[in-house]
């Protein structure tokens, strides 16, 4: 059995997502600025920010505990690994069988759990406001995500991402109502999970509206850099997830030639680019919601997910 090549592919993917993630954040920012008629910072600005933050000394609040210092590494490791488990440019990743889609969802949940705890560690109201809002949003987004996973699993007969994608590429997949509903739900969830408009504004530092930024307000230096990087990775994760499941074309098959891998890679970049443009246009056209309108928004995602699952249970062809 050839072990070298899959390992290389997996390693390539891990490095790829790591390097690509800040660029994605930078391009969405740039696109949004241009749409608003501003010049905007360069696409590589997030890389410069990370480099700068990594070299600054972190300032901790007086009573920050060891947990506060460990959480950035934990969150980063969980999100990085979850992102590396989603197929980007090829199928059949060797880490694939370690965690299915349910486990990936739960890994994101673990990262969120620790981040919310670290927000409470210093004992300021900002941390509390961020943590309490984040867990409320997650309490709606996570079940909705699981229902989307249920739908996909029932369509493909598997919870493994590679197997789901392989099934969707096969001729028996076809167009399905339940998949359309699942896509709609997943888009809503992706906005909420990544603290994008209209749920949360990644550019704001206003107390009344902050969610994610309030949680990481006390972080600085390399800790902040890790958390910012993890946030970019999470955005990339959802982009890859939507791209792999709903636009499964162009993925290299396991064991194909180098050119196929390269073609897969360029397809992937194309998908991500299209997604970034769509996100920028979407966000420019929207205002942030009031906090207590969010349950309606995510409730819609939950209901769409439930409807999609129900349709699958009722009929095999929908």
């Amino acid at each position: 059995m050839d072990l070298v090549r899959p390992t290389l592919v997996q390693a390539a993917q891990m490095v790829l997502v790591l390097l690509l993630a800040p660029g994605l954040t930078g391009s969405v920012r740039k696109l949004k600025a241009r749409l608003l008629g501003r010049q905007g910072p360069s696409i590589v600005q997030p890389y410069r920010d990370l480099w700068r933050l990594f070299r600054k000394s972190p300032v901790l609040a007086g009573n920050a505990s060891w947990l506060f210092r460990v959480v950035p590494y934990l969150v980063f490791a969980f999100i990085w690994l979850a992102t590396a488990l989603v197929p980007t440019f090829c199928l059949g990743l060797p880490f694939g069988p370690w965690a299915d889609l349910i486990a990936i969802t739960a890994m994101i949940g673990t990262a969120r759990f620790f981040l919310a705890l670290s927000a409470l560690d210093v004992g300021t109201s900002f941390g509390g406001i961020g943590a309490s809002r984040e867990v409320m949003i997650a309490s709606l987004a996570e079940p909705a995500m699981l229902l989307v996973v249920f739908t996909l699993a029932l369509v493909a007969g598997s919870t493994e991402l590679s197997a789901i994608t392989a099934f969707l590429l096969s001729p028996s997949a076809g167009l399905r109502v339940s998949m359309a509903l699942a896509l709609a739900a997943l888009l809503l969830i992706a906005l909420a999970e990544n603290s994008r408009l209209p749920i949360d504004n990644p550019a704001t530092h206003l107390e009344l509206t902050m969610v994610h930024e309030a949680m990481i307000l006390e972080y600085s230096g390399r800790h902040l850099a890790l958390l910012e990087w993890a946030a970019s990775l999470k955005l990339l994760l959802y982009f890859s997830l939507i791209g792999t499941i709903f636009v499964p074309w162009g993925l290299a098959k396991p064991g194909s030639s180098l050119t196929a891998y390269l073609a897969g890679g360029s397809f992937y970049l194309l998908k991500i680019g299209t997604g970034a443009i769509a996100l920028a246009i979407f966000e420019t056209g929207l205002a942030k919601m009031r906090l207590f309108r969010i349950p309606d928004f995510l409730g819609a995602a939950l209901m769409l997910g439930l409807l999609a699952t129900l349709l699958r249970f009722v009929s095999g062809s929908l």
């Binding site: 070299r55 600054k56 000394s57 972190p58 300032v59 901790l60 609040a61 007086g62 920050a64 210092r69 210093v122 004992g123 300021t124 900002f126 307000l217 006390e218 230096g221």
Partner: peptide, 9 residues
């Protein structure tokens, strides 16, 4: 760089 301590914001 070593960690510095200061009051919370």
């Amino acid at each position: 760089r070593p960690i510095r301590r200061s009051p919370a914001w």
